Simulated assay, not measured.
Amino acid sequence: MIITQTPYRVSFAGGGTDLPAFYQHEPGAVLSMGVGHHMYVTVSPRFDKTTRVAYTRVEIADGIDRIEHTIAREALRMTGLGEHLEITTVGDVPAGTGMGSSSSLAVGMLNALYAYKGQVTSPGLLAEQACQIEIDILGKPIGRQDQYAAAYGGVNYIRFNPDHTVDVEPVPCRPEFLDQLEKHILLLYTDQQRDADVILKKQSEGSADKMSVLRQMRDLAGELRNTMGGKGDLDDFGRILHEGWELKRSLGFGISTAGVDEWYQAARRAGAMGGKLLGAGGGGFLLVMAPPERHEAIREAVGRPREISFRIDRRGSRVIFISDRYTF
C-alpha cells in the first residue's frame, strides 16, 4: 500500500492571473502557501480483476473507461496503471470551499500511482501532469496555481508565462514572521459551497475587459513577496490583503456575495487588518488577518462560524507510507 499526503493551498494575491485569458497576453503571478490541511490518497493491490475507487461514493469498474471518477480515471491512464487496484481518497476539507481540493487530489493521485510503480517523481512533473489532466483533458476552466502550490508546498511566488510554462520561486521569510503570520490568520467557514468552474468561466470570458484590474492584482503578489522578505511587515501584509479584497470584488463575476461582504465589514470593524475569500469566490472560507487579541471580537462579530486552523505546510505532496509490496 502507498499513502500520499498533499496540502491544500491558500492564495493571498494574484488569483485570476493564472488563467490563460490573462497570462497568454502577459505574465501572471500569485503569492500562495501550502497549508496544513490535506488530501490523502491510498493505492493498494486488489484481488479481483477490477478497479475499486472509494471517495464520497464507491465504484467498482472492470475497465479504466468505466471509472466515473474523472481524475482517478485520467491519472490511471497517464501512469499506465489499471486493473487490480484499490484506490481511496480522503480530504480534510470539503470540495468547493476555495482551498484547491481538486488539484490537491490530482497531484496526490499521480504521486501515489507513480510511487506504486516504484517511480520517483518531481514536484514540477506532478504539477504539470495535474494541469494536463484538469485543464487539457477534462477541460476545466481553471488556472494553474493550485497544482503547483499542492506539489511544492511552502511559501511561493508562482509566475505564469505566455508560453504556458510556470516558474516557482520560494519566498525567503524569517521563521519569526511566518510564526506571527500563522497566529494572525483566521479561516472562517461561510457555510456555502460553490462550483468554482462557473465563476472561473465567467472570469475567463470577461478578462479582456478587466485587464487593468487583473494587472494590479498580479502586482500585489510581487508586493507581498517583498513585504515578506527581510524582517517582514505584518501591517503592510494586512494592508495589501485589503487592497486585494477591494480589487477582486471590483471584478464582479459573482466572486463575493452580500453575506460575505457583511462578514468582512463586520470583521474590519472588530479589528481585522485585511482578508480575502479563498479560491474563485462565491463562498467557501473567508480568510481574515488580525492581531490575535482581536480574534475573539471578530468571531463574535460574524456570529461564531465554524473555523479551521491555519498552519503553513512547507513540504508539498509526499509519500507518507509504503507497506511491503505484493501482488495477487
Rank of each mutant, 00 (worst) to 15 (best):
H38G: 00
H25A: 13
V43M: 09
Y23C: 06
G36V: 01
V53G: 02
P27C: 08
E26Y: 07
H37R: 14
T17D: 08
P20M: 09
M39H: 05
D18F: 09
G63E: 13
S44R: 10
Q24T: 14
D62A: 05
V30P: 03
H25T: 11
G28I: 11
I60M: 12
L19P: 08
M39A: 12
A21S: 15
I60E: 15
S32K: 00
T56M: 05
T17K: 05
L19E: 04
G63R: 14
P45G: 08
H37T: 11
Q24Y: 11
T56L: 11
G36Y: 00
R57D: 14
V58I: 15
V43A: 15
Y40S: 04
L19D: 06
Y40D: 00
Q24G: 00
Y55V: 00
P45A: 05
E26F: 03
T51N: 02
Y40W: 08
M39Y: 02
S32A: 15
F47C: 03
V43D: 07
P20T: 11
V35E: 10
E59G: 09
Q24C: 02
V58F: 00
V35S: 11
H25G: 03
L19H: 10
F22N: 02
I60V: 15
V43F: 04
G36L: 06
T51D: 03
H25F: 08
M39G: 07
V43I: 14
G63K: 12
P20Y: 04
H25I: 04
L19R: 04
F22S: 01
V30R: 04
G34V: 12
D62G: 10
R52P: 01
G28K: 08
G28P: 10
R46Q: 14
D62F: 01
F47K: 13
D18K: 11
E59L: 08
A21R: 01
A21N: 04
S32L: 10
H25V: 12
Q24E: 12
H37C: 03
G34F: 06
T42N: 05
R46C: 09
A61R: 12
T50I: 05
A21Y: 02
F47Y: 11
V30H: 03
R52S: 07
R46V: 01
H37K: 13
Q24W: 07
V58R: 13
Y40Q: 01
M39F: 09
R57Y: 10
L31E: 03
G28W: 04
P45I: 09
G28E: 05
H25C: 06
D48A: 15
T56P: 07
V58P: 00
H38Q: 02
P20W: 04
L31S: 08
S32V: 12
F47P: 00
H38V: 03
V41G: 03
I60R: 13
V35A: 12
A54Q: 13
D62L: 03
V58T: 15
E59P: 06
G34L: 12
T50H: 14
V43L: 11
K49F: 13
T51A: 12
R57I: 08
V53M: 04
G63L: 02
F47S: 12
A54P: 00
Q24K: 13
H38E: 02
E26V: 13
H37S: 10
G36W: 00
R46M: 09
